[in-house]
Design a binder for these strands. Structure first.
Lengths: 159, 159
DNA sequence: GTATTTTTGGCATTAGATTCCAAAATTCAT
DNA sequence: ATGAATTTTGGAATCTAATGCCAAAAATAC
């Protein structure tokens, strides 16, 4: 694993500006963090190259795209032998409807965020994608009714 | 609510390309979706203006930034009177450690994603941020041990 | 306090974004 | 099907941003 040099206050300012707007130009970014464009771009490239920044993306309206139903799924496995765990996790990586899969403390082993087009589509997901994996002891489904908040911007860091 | 015109296959290709790399140039994007740069940019601007695309962001290594602990918190309210609900949701929007807050079906009312620097910081979060809100009947905390998958890329849509 | 190292800022060059318009493709009415 | 109307595309010119280089400034070490 790459060890990432400690970020300074300016790096974190750059990161928070990009979390607010990932497609801001370097010129605007430089102005926002009070730096001239060339050192700003150099810092940005460093953050990208040393692993502090892992990528860029776009936020899309799920309804507009045609996947209006978001589901949070908590899954426990029957046992935790290497083969069962590896098989499950490989399937998670391969299933396109699964956007996120976390390993959790607490009663459930995994928490998934899944997007589908409707209830029927979710039934298909459980029947055709999850059940065939095997080794699953419980599936607890919660649908997302509304989004109160969703941001990419980290809290200010005072370290 | 703005009604967003139906996206066609090309719009969805553009979106998926940007979900993979939100900072791709218009020239590269155009090449990827087999379109020349000018109509590609015009489509992109349309998606931005009509609400299909809501923003751009950067993915940051939480450890590098100094917030290595991610927590999923399930919260239920004692009652669902307008004042209690509104107060709770306004506080969620205002607390910087809360990156996401969803309204859920199932046993819990809300699911939060919270980032903090350590366990002590999370205790402070619960004591100083959540408890003072009032009206909370239960808080169920699960720590994220590992990330099996995390993508922004939606499944291909065949509609 | 001076030498060394790191970071910055400005400039020249290269690459990309944006705009405009004519051509091509699609849609619609008949 | 056929032609008119509408929408979408592609290319060229222009404007804006990114990139690389080097000297100056700042920070650090001795």
């Amino acid at each position: 694993m790459p060890k990432i040099p400690q970020l300074d206050a300016l790096d974190r300012k750059i990161i928070r500006a990009l979390q607010r707007n990932g497609r801001i130009t370097n010129l605007e970014l430089a102005a926002e963090v009070n730096l001239s464009p060339s050192p700003c771009l150099r810092r940005l490239r460093n953050l990208e190259n040393n692993g502090a920044i892992t990528g860029y993306s776009v936020d899309v309206n799920t309804k507009a795209y045609g996947l209006p139903v978001t589901v949070m799924v908590r899954i426990s496995l029957e046992k935790h032998t290497e083969d069962v765990v590896v098989r499950f996790e490989e399937r998670m990586k391969a299933i396109p409807e699964v956007l996120e899969c976390f390993v959790m403390t607490g009663l459930s082993d995994y928490l998934l965020r899944v997007v589908v087009s409707d209830l029927e589509d979710y039934e298909r997901f459980v029947r055709d994608r999850l059940h065939p994996i095997g080794g699953i002891s419980s599936i607890d489904t919660s649908f997302v009714y509304g989004v109160v908040k969703r941001t990419h911007v980290f809290p200010e860091f005072h370290g």
